[in-house]
């Protein structure tokens, strides 16, 4: 499983960081960055929640 944030869509609302702070981080350019490119299965639920809550649909979860 891989996680991507589309920086053309992301506008730094930060919902992902609230629900999955181990996976996402807001940086100085007000974009969300992925901290773990290939997260373990244990984080799947919170990543899915982050993707669901993202108001801009900027988060993609790609299955290997």
């Amino acid at each position: 499983m891989r996680v991507e944030v589309d920086h053309n869509l992301c506008e730094g609302n930060g919902r992902c960081v609230e629900v999955a702070s181990r996976v996402f981080e807001l940086r100085d350019d007000d974009r969300s960055y992925v901290l773990i490119q290939n997260p373990p299965q244990a984080l799947r639920a919170e990543i899915q929640l982050a993707a669901k809550l993202c108001p801009r649909q900027a988060i993609r979860l790609i299955e290997d």
């Binding site: 506008e11 730094g12 609302n13 930060g14 960081v17 807001l26 100085d28 007000d30």
Partner: peptide, 13 residues
Amino acid sequence: YRQVVNRRFTPRA
């Protein structure tokens, strides 16, 4: 249009 003020409403801002 949203870009004009968006950065003033981000979580950091």
